[in-house]
Design a protein around this nucleic acid. Sequence first.
DNA 1: TATAATAGTGACAAGTATTGTCATAAAATA
DNA 2: TATTTTATGACAATACTTGTCACTATTATA
Lengths: 334, 334
Amino acid sequence: MSKHESRDTMSKSKRLLELMLTVNRKRKFTVKELALEFGVSSRTILRDLQELGELGVPLYSEVGPHGGYQVLNERILPPIAFTEEEAVALFFACHALRHYSYIPFETEASSALGKFYHYMSGDVRDRIDQMKNRVDFVVPARQAESPYLSVLLEAAVMQQTVRIGYKSQDTLSERNIQPIGIYASSGLWYCPAYCFLRGGVRLFRCDRIESVKEGDPVTKPLDLRSIHLDNWEDSFSDKSPNTRCRVQLSEEGVRVCEAELGRRGLLRVREDGTGWIDGDIPNSEIPYFARLFIGLGSDAEVTEPPELIECMRSKLKELLAKYDGQDQPSSPRT
Amino acid sequence: MSKHESRDTMSKSKRLLELMLTVNRKRKFTVKELALEFGVSSRTILRDLQELGELGVPLYSEVGPHGGYQVLNERILPPIAFTEEEAVALFFACHALRHYSYIPFETEASSALGKFYHYMSGDVRDRIDQMKNRVDFVVPARQAESPYLSVLLEAAVMQQTVRIGYKSQDTLSERNIQPIGIYASSGLWYCPAYCFLRGGVRLFRCDRIESVKEGDPVTKPLDLRSIHLDNWEDSFSDKSPNTRCRVQLSEEGVRVCEAELGRRGLLRVREDGTGWIDGDIPNSEIPYFARLFIGLGSDAEVTEPPELIECMRSKLKELLAKYDGQDQPSSPRT
DNA sequence: TATAATAGTGACAAGTATTGTCATAAAATA
DNA sequence: TATTTTATGACAATACTTGTCACTATTATA
C-alpha cells in the first residue's frame, strides 16, 4: 500500500521531490528498496539519486552486503512556505540565542541562521539587515560556565542517571542524580533532578556542577518520564521544614518577584498591578528571601514569618553598621 | 546576462526549482518576462507555473494590462539543508520566544514553528518531542504591557520621529523622539531614542509609554543611521550631572550586577570571579543604585560617592524602623 | 576462496513527456 | 475598440525518460 498518490504514474519532477523527502526520512536505504517503493526500475532510481546529489543532497554510498546509500549528516527540509513576518521572527529568535555562551546543542545555531539568511529573498533580507541592530533580546552578558549542559540534557531525555561533583557553599560533594531537564534563567542554567543522595527532587545550578561522570551502575534509573520542567516543582520541597510566608507587594515589587520566583507559584497579582506572596517557603531559603525583600525596600512589606523579619532585621543592622559613620570602607579588599 | 548556469539547456526539474526561487524573489511578474529570462516559450512557463501551483506555491494571476502573476502572501523558502543539531537549535530558539507576551512582530512565531515542526522528518521530530519539556530558556513570566513595540521598531528602522506620552515617576509628559531601537531585558522592553525635548539620547521604558502618535511634522528626523543598539550608549548620559561611583563586588555581586547593568560598561571582572564597579553614574540614578547595593548586602561594598552611601544609610534606617520592634505591619494595606 | 549483495556504467530501443507553434477565448484597461 | 495579459487546446517535432541487458567493481560473509 503506497502512501503516495498514484506513485506509478508520477512525473519525474514529482518523484524527485518525493524522493528527497523519502531519503531524508530513512537515512539509510538501498537502490532496490526505493525502486520497489516507487515502482520504477533500479536504473531509474540510480539516475535520480545522482541528480539529487547534483541538486545538493549529500549522498554517500557503500557497495557490498549491508552496503547501500546514506544521507550524510545533513537533512534537507522540504520547501516550506513562510510569511515574511514568520521568517523575520524566526531569524530574531535564533539571533537571540547568540547571547548564550553556553547552550546544550553541540552545533551553534549561527550556522542554521546563516543558511536561513542566505536563502531568503532579497527584500526580506534587506528588512532583516535594517532591523538587525535595532531589536534585541538581551540576557546577562557574561555567564557562569556550564560545560555539562548537553550531558545533563541527554540524561534527562534518555532517563539515565549521572554522577556529579557539586559545590554548594564551599562543600564539594559527589552524588548520583537523574536530571529532569535544564533551563536558563537570568543568565544561569539550572537543572532540577532527582537526587539519590537526598532521596528527592532537588534543584542544581549547572555552574556549580564541577564534574559529570557516568551514573553509578548500582543506582537504577527511576521512571521520571511524567516529570518534566512544567511540573517538577510539585515533587519538590515537600521534605524540608517549611514556614508560611506572607508579603505585600507594590507594582514594582510584583515585577521583581516575578523575575525572581516566577516559577514557584507563590505570587498573586491584583488587577491594579500590585500583589502579594502567600505560600510555604523552606526554612533554608529564609536568608535568600531576606535579601530579596530588603532589596525591594518599600515595595515589599513582610508580615510573616517572624523568622524572616528577624533575619532581615539582623541583616539591616549589619549593613547599617557597615555604612554608618564612615565614608571609607572598614576593611578594604586587595 | 543570466545569473543561472546554462539556462538554455536546463532540465525541467531544475527549471522548476529555479523558477520557485525566481518567483519568490520578484513577487510580481508576467509570463513573458519569465519566458525571456529562462529562454523557453511562454507556453512552457504557463505549464510550469501551473505545476508549481499544484506543488503548493500560492500563485495568483490577473489578466489584462498591468496584470500578471503574483505570489500570494507567503514565500517559499527553497529546500535548505539543516543538520539535526541545527534544526533542533532553531526549534528551541523559536520555542523560547513563546515566553514573551509582547514581541515586535505582528505574526506569532508559533505559526512558523508549527510549519517547521510539521515538515521535519520523523526522528528529528521525536527528538524534539522528547526534549520539548526538558530544556527551556526562561524569561520573567508576566511582563509589563508594551503594545507599541512594532511602531517604535518601525520608526527606528525608517528613521522617523514619533510623539509619545511618557510616564516617568508619576509625571506624564509628551515629547517627540526618534527611536534608535528596542530591546528586551529581564522581562521589560526598553527603547533608546533621541529625545527632542531633552536634546539628547535617552532611554525609555516601553511599558511607561502610554501613547504613540505620528511624529510632529515640524521636528525633522535626524540622520541616526550610524547609531544603533550596539553603540547608542556612547552618545548617552553626557549631559546630566554625574558622580564617580566605586563599588567592590563579590562573585555573587558580579553576577547580579551583570544582569542589572550589563550594557553600561561600568563593570570590571577579576579572574577569580569577583569584580568592581568604577565609572560615572547620573545623580538621578543614585536611588536606583542605592536599592541595588542594599539588596546585594555583603556582596557589595560601596566606597564612592558619599551621596550614594548617605542615600543607602537613610534607606536602611527607614527599613529598620519599619521592621524594628514589631511583628505586625505598621500600616496594613487594603 | 567462492558467493551473494550491492553500487555503478554504458548502450539502445521503446515509450513518454516536453516543448514550441498556432489558434482561440476571456478579461481588464486605456 | 485596440492592447495587454492570462488561459486552454491541439499537434507535431523533438528531447527526455525508462527498462533491459550486459558488464565491472567492491565488500562482507559463508
